[in-house]
Design a protein around this nucleic acid. Structure first.
Lengths: 131, 131
DNA sequence: TATAACATTAACGTTAACGTAAGCTTCAAG
DNA sequence: CTTGAAGCTTACGTTAACGTTAATGTTATA
């Protein structure tokens, strides 16, 4: 599909139309309008919304998400802008790495706890440490 | 250190004392009190707060976090309770796996974009897809 | 012993991220 | 042609997660 109405997008991403309008209000998306001022969403808008939703799943706030998408949106033709974008991107990648590591730790801890539970051991001392 | 005051914990976790009191208000922690009704935080409370903060970093809401910590808090002596806890834990591990995968995807995409930027290529077509 | 630093509860204020309702226009189907 | 579904704007309502203030009590220390 090449273009979407607001309700189609809302259905697709399992959010309300109000949510999408709110994202436009906040400047995270800028869909075109037809002659009757109805919003027209392109594939580009779709992709943008997908990024926004992912950011939300990761617990980022809308203004953080906005900062990210806007920064990567403008093509950094100027040398200075490019350097800035690169620095930002590398920083974000480091943050992502930290998150991945933390999640893997959490996973290991939970698996450990599951094993203990399955073995039928309460292990109050260990519990104290984890809890 | 074996016990903490509320301001010590607040400093340690870089939050306000109000935040810690709020978590108690919401039932996420239950610190003991001294004879003058001042809160006394033990190592156990410290560990609990650490878990809460991690949950926050992952974008969980306080009631979700509460559900988790409370569920793993009670030792599931009853068979039924144990089964329930095990099921919940395995579900959570699956969720964590999904998050890790999603983060790794995101990381790859961002590294890809960084490489393109460093190569000095705008790639409008690719931009459209990612953006 | 005074006094600053820290603690308590109670209560009202704030902000992000929407929900909801009203009043209007537009569009598609029978 | 009407009628119901969908869209629009405006605006007020809601909730989670605290911030802030007030009024008061406690503790440490010079």
């Amino acid at each position: 599909m090449l273009i979407y109405s607001i309700s189609e997008l809302a259905r697709e991403f399992a959010v309300s139309t109000r949510t999408i309008r709110y994202y436009e209000e906040m400047g995270l998306i800028c869909p075109e309008r037809n002659q009757n001022s109805r919003r027209i969403f392109t594939k580009k808008d779709y992709a943008r919304l997908k990024l926004i939703m992912r950011g939300k799943r990761f617990g980022f706030q809308l203004n953080e998400i906005k900062e990210m998408v806007l920064l990567f949106d403008q093509d950094p033709t100027g040398q200075k802008q490019l350097v800035r974008t690169l620095g930002y991107g590398k920083e974000k990648i480091l943050e992502i790495n930290e998150r991945i590591e933390e999640l893997q730790e959490l996973k290991i801890e939970m698996e450990e706890m599951m094993r203990r539970l399955e073995a039928g051991i309460s292990l109050p001392r260990q519990k104290e440490e984890f809890q």
